[in-house]
Design a binder for these strands. Structure first.
Length: 729
RNA sequence: GCUGCUGUAGCUCAGUCGGUAGAGCGCGUCCUUGGUAAGGACGAGGUCAUGGGUUCAAGUCCCAUCAGCAGCUCCA
């Protein structure tokens, strides 16, 4: 007999071969039916395996995982991924299986298959899945030794599984498999007891992927995404959330409401701000500029380009070469020599090609007569570098910091004037991979609400503290109150970071101290730091529960070193300042794009491009009074227009509603006689007649308080604490 | 950058088997002058993304390019 201890402390006796499922059945039939898996000492395991196989503990600390537990949801989804793979194998004979893990809200399975899977196929895949679920066959686990396992997968024709056992799982002495009817898959598990426990599922999308995430190995896979839930109701809520997100797509709303546009004529990832989008942006910029002035920042301006040497010194140019626009050369041969150097350094330059380059460079006016063609590679590179350095090369700036550093450096600094805070809405250019571009959220030209704070090491904590306050304040001003901070730290043992060990320790400690002290919800992430220092990123949740990385605060002990910055201390000796990079919004593009989705295009009054529209009942009789009202509203500082079309007022109201104008002012005979308006609210509808002054006061109050009145919360909750499982197989 | 899918009027989309290009909304003109989410009539709008190819004939089939979408990889 074995002893089992349940979470409430009760002890039970069970036969030696008892499983968690047996324990559940002993408590109640319904519980057994709802049991998906079990948890022993925090480890999620199969409910159908004998407890003795799973632990030596006595008594066995057992928790039954049912359709009320987030952990069970992951198990069930992973089982559903197997069901999907089984269905696909039936419909596409000869398909190769790769990986099939769970992800947030669902799962995927990667297949190796020549024939493309199309959306039209989803229905029959789901049908096959329904048939498999209806059969409710059990998931059976078994083990094989390495050699047997390789032979077994070979016999099944699963070459990728063989490869994975030989490489990824080379340390595993024996391998576990799960069988479900005719379908067998190498898998760590755990799984639900039988397929019948999958109550709601759907195949969602198909996309390309790469074997083990490596694009260079040339092995293309097809990734089929699906979702699964404990009930149809939960699934419906989730699908509705996806729909809601689609309805809020800033690319669609941005076009519809004339906020921004991205055209092939201008270029991929280069955003044109239309008047209405520019209006929203400029409200935000004015707001934060005023805030910065109040907080002791000095606004500065700097150009969009800078000499390449600036970014060589900062380290950005060599580190991010591939994600920058190519340098601009003033000499005709510049680009050629640059490509020449890179080919030499890459070791991929033939003798003939080199001679051709030599000749071509000469034609373009670069004197190559003393080029050491027979010298070492280093000598040849040095010759070309030397020439290049005599030439002007510019870079579209990928960062504002080097320019701000030059402003700091332009005069001697005393500890008395620190911190120096230089702020600029600086536009930077990054050559993002084409597949990464996404509306305003990921662009190639973006404007950061950037600033750099230069301070003494002693001031770091206080500066960081104040900066966190600023970020919190600006997020609150647009009604974003649901966020957490990700503290990105270095990864021990990696060589991608610059700067001394002591500085990193100091920086990380300072950030952690202040975050602790402010009580912000934060989480540490090793390996996510920038190459020059740790950072605190604000992860903001929007009204339908999606998380966005917006503001960032980054400590930097590196650039001051590289640019040899100093200030004179009270000891009359030079000291090294510390830099803080920070951008509360992140970039204006990304921030406004996120706001469009958060507000579903319906901006709060203080940000709305058009705040009030005056609607005359009759175009010819009330046009004059409508014009007067509009002028009064404009004089009071509102963005107001008049709708003078010869349409019925119902139709004008409908259009204004669809254009998401916050307020309408209807004017007819009565209003004209009394000097009033019939105010209509986008949200609450008709507010009745009131004097114009009263309407002005009402709107003024809403704007001054930066009120956010309409943010629809999503029905979808998901599972508290749910995370994507880390599936090894 | 890679894989897959897509590209028809300002917008959203039909377009069968390869046989002279369609709708709704929007826009323009005219009629209508109205009271809180669509009044009516008429009209203008397209080198079917671009460039090649196959064919008597291409929006439709093939190739390339460009752009968009989904995903992968990346993100100072």
């Amino acid at each position: 007999m074995i002893q089992v201890q349940l979470p409430d402390g009760t002890l039970q006796e069970h036969p030696d071969e008892a499983t968690a499922l047996d324990v559940a059945a002993g408590i109640g039939e319904r519980l057994a039916g709802a049991t998906m898996a079990a948890e022993i000492d925090g480890m999620v395991v199969d409910a159908m395996r004998p407890l003795k196989q799973l632990t030596d503990a006595d008594p066995v600390p057992l928790k039954l995982l049912t359709n009320r537990d987030a952990e069970a949801l992951g198990v069930m989804r992973h089982s559903c991924a197997h069901v999907m793979a089984r269905a696909v194998m039936r419909l596409f004979p000869g398909v190769g299986l790769a990986f099939g893990p769970t992800v947030a809200n669902g799962y995927y399975y990667d297949f190796e298959l020549d024939e493309p899977i199309r959306e039209d196929d989803f229905e029959r895949i789901e049908q096959e899945m329904r048939a498999i679920v209806k059969e409710a066959e059990p998931f059976e686990r078994f083990h094989l030794g390495r050699d047997e396992a390789i032979e077994f997968c070979g016999e099944l024709g699963q070459a990728l599984k063989v490869e994975h056992i030989e490489t990824g799982l080379s340390e595993h002495p024996d391998l576990s498999f799960y069988r479900q009817g005719e379908f067998v898959d190498l898998c760590r598990g755990p799984h639900v007891p039988d397929a019948g426990r999958i109550k709601a599922f759907k195949v969602l999308s198909v996309a390309g992927s790469h074997w083990k995430g490596d694009a260079s190995n040339g092995r293309r896979l097809q990734r089929l995404y699906g979702t699964a839930w404990f009930s149809k109701k939960e699934q419906a809520a989730y699908l509705e959330r996806i729909e809601e997100a689609r309805r809020r797509d800033h690319r669609v709303l941005g076009k519809q409401h004339g906020l921004f546009s991205i055209t092939p004529e201008v270029g991929q990832g280069l955003c044109l701000w239309m008047p209405k989008g520019a209006s929203v942006r400029s409200r935000l910029e004015d707001f934060i500029k005023a805030e910065l002035l109040a907080r002791g920042y000095d606004p500065v301006y700097s150009p969009h380009v800078g000499r390449v040497e600036l970014y060589e010194t900062s380290g950005h140019f060599p580190y991010y070469r591939d994600s920058q626009f190519a340098p601009l050369f003033t000499h005709d041969a510049g680009q050629l020599v640059d490509g020449w150097i890179r080919r030499l350094e890459g070791g991929a330059l033939g003798e003939q090609d080199e001679q051709a380059l030599c000749a071509a460079a000469a034609v373009l006016g670069c004197d190559t007569s003393s080029y050491p063609a027979n010298g070492t590679r280093d000598e040849r590179v040095a010759f070309l570098h030397h020439w290049e350095r005599t030439q002007e090369r510019f870079l579209l700036k990928p960062m504002n910091c080097p320019h701000h550093v030059q402003i700091y450096k332009s005069q001697p600094r005393s500890y008395r004037e620190l911190p120096v805070r230089l702020a600029e809405f600086g536009t930077v250019y990054r050559y993002e991979q084409s597949g990464e571009l996404n509306g305003m959220l990921r662009v190639r030209g973006l404007t950061q609400d950037d600033a750099h704070q230069f301070c003494t090491p002693d001031q770091v904590e206080q500066e960081f503290r104040e900066t966190l306050e600023l970020v919190k304040f600006v997020l609150a001003s647009v009604g974003l109150d649901d966020y957490r901070v990700q503290l990105s730290l270095r990864e021990t043992g990696s060589d991608k970071y610059v700067g001394s060990q002591e500085n990193w320790d100091l920086a990380e400690r300072s950030l952690r101290n202040v975050l602790e002290e402010t009580g912000l919800d934060y989480e540490e992430c090793a390996g996510e730091a920038a190459f020059y220092g740790p950072k605190a990123d604000f992860m903001v949740s929007d009204c339908i529960g999606r998380e966005w990385q917006l503001g960032t605060v980054q400590l930097d002990y590196n650039l001051p070193e590289r640019f040899d910055l100093d200030y004179i201390g009270s000891d009359n000796r030079p000291h090294r300042p510390v830099m803080i990079h920070r951008a509360p919004f992140g970039s204006m593009e990304r921030f406004v794009g996120m706001l469009i989705e958060h507000f579903a295009g319906a901006f709060p009054l203080w940000l709305a491009p058009e705040q009030v529209r005056v609607l005359p009942i009759s175009e010819d009789r009330h046009a004059e009074y409508a014009g007067q009202v509009t002028e009064r509203l404009q004089a009071a500082g509102f963005r107001a227009t008049t709708d003078l079309r010869s349409a019925k007022v119902q139709s004008k109201i409908r259009d204004a509603q669809l254009e998401l104008i916050p307020y309408m002012a209807v004017v007819g005979d009565k209003e004209a006689a009394e000097g009033s308006v019939a105010l209509r609210d986008r949200i609450d509808g008709d507010l009745g007649m009131m004097p114009v002054d009263q309407a002005v006061a009402r709107l003024r109050e809403e704007i001054d308080g930066r009120q956010v009145r309409q943010v629809v919360k999503s029905e979808f909750k998901g599972f508290e604490g749910e995370t994507a499982a880390d599936n090894e197989y």
